[in-house]
């Protein structure tokens, strides 16, 4: 399984994180769940994931700040990011910086389909 690309799930709700994780695994990713903003920022200094699913509403550091950090750091600037939010209006200004906006509640099937599209194997080189 070490050959699967890594998807980082930054989501404070464990149930939602579980759903994200299962869908991403189904789409062919390895997953790693981080449940608060601060921890997410720290994690991002480590290895670079292939995909990040980022909840906008997080404790300590907001998802918006994390997205800004991801795009500011040249190591992670190219990483595909899917935003997840229960208040999609908040995500509208961030759309151009992200690859997709997931409206909560996120459908398992939908996420699975979208994630497969963003899988490095399915993306053009």
């Amino acid at each position: 399984m070490a050959t699967n690309p890594l998807a980082l799930i930054i989501e404070d709700d464990p149930k939602q994180a579980e759903i994200f994780s299962q869908a991403l695994k189904k789409a062919g990713f390895d997953t790693e769940i981080i449940s608060d903003g601060q921890a997410a920022l720290e994690r991002l200094t480590g290895s670079v994931p292939a995909l990040i699913v980022l909840d906008l509403h997080l404790p300590y550091v907001s998802g918006e700040d994390i997205l800004r950090q991801i795009r500011a750091d040249e190591r992670t600037a190219h990483v595909r990011v899917m935003l997840a939010t229960a208040n999609p209006q908040m995500a509208v200004p961030l759309e151009s910086d992200s690859d997709f906006v997931l409206h909560k509640p996120v459908s398992f099937t939908q996420l699975q389909i979208l994630a497969s599209r963003l899988h490095p194997d399915n993306l053009p080189a």
Partner: peptide, 10 residues
């Protein structure tokens, strides 16, 4: 929405 999301998701 959140619990509904979990229901649907699971």
């Amino acid at each position: 929405r959140t619990p509904l999301g979990s229901i649907l998701g699971y």
